[in-house]
């Protein structure tokens, strides 16, 4: 997306969270992350994020070589602040979602996924 700072390859998950929140405190609350407990194949792991009032949701795979996964921005005609997709996980790790709510606050949800076969082909 034009206008966003280019994310360097060396950025850690914590760096990316700080960049997204601008250093603001991240609480718990109106955000749900659904991911399988065990994924046999790390190449395609289904996940779902949902929230009642998120404007944006950042998804990170903290144990991947580059932790960025996706950022969802919800527009005027989004009927719910929810989306599903399929992601790659290099190995067993925490998947983290951070939502920016409409009131400007940030909340976090995370889920540990056990991966039998890694998805980054390293």
């Amino acid at each position: 997306v034009a206008g966003l700072p280019k994310i360097g390859a060396a950025a850690t998950g914590d760096d990316l969270i700080a960049e997204f929140t601008g250093g603001a405190e991240v609480g718990e609350g109106d955000l749900k992350l659904v991911a399988p407990e065990i994924a046999e194949n790390g190449n395609t792991v289904p996940i779902e994020v949902s929230s009642g009032s998120a404007a944006e949701i950042l998804v990170l795979a903290m144990g991947n070589p580059t932790p960025s996964v996706a950022t969802f921005k919800f527009g005027k005609l989004a009927a719910s602040r929810a989306a599903s997709t399929r992601i790659r996980l290099a190995g067993t790790q925490d998947v983290v979602a951070i939502a920016k709510l409409e009131d400007g606050s940030f909340v976090k949800a995370s889920s540990t996924v056990k991966v039998t076969i890694g998805g980054c082909g390293g």
């Binding site: 997306v1 966003l4 190449n43 395609t44 792991v45 795979a61 991947n64 580059t66 932790p67 960025s68 996964v69 996706a70 950022t71 969802f72 921005k73 919800f74 527009g75 005027k76 005609l77 989004a78 009927a79 719910s80 929810a82 989306a83 599903s84 997709t85 399929r86 992601i87 790659r88 996980l89 998805g119």
Partner: peptide, 21 residues
């Protein structure tokens, strides 16, 4: 009018799939 705008990183699987309302 926008519904969703998603930024994708390499960690999105082959044949990117999205479901939303």
């Amino acid at each position: 009018e926008n519904v969703v705008d998603v930024e994708l990183a390499p960690a999105i699987s082959t044949n990117p799939y999205f479901e939303f309302e």
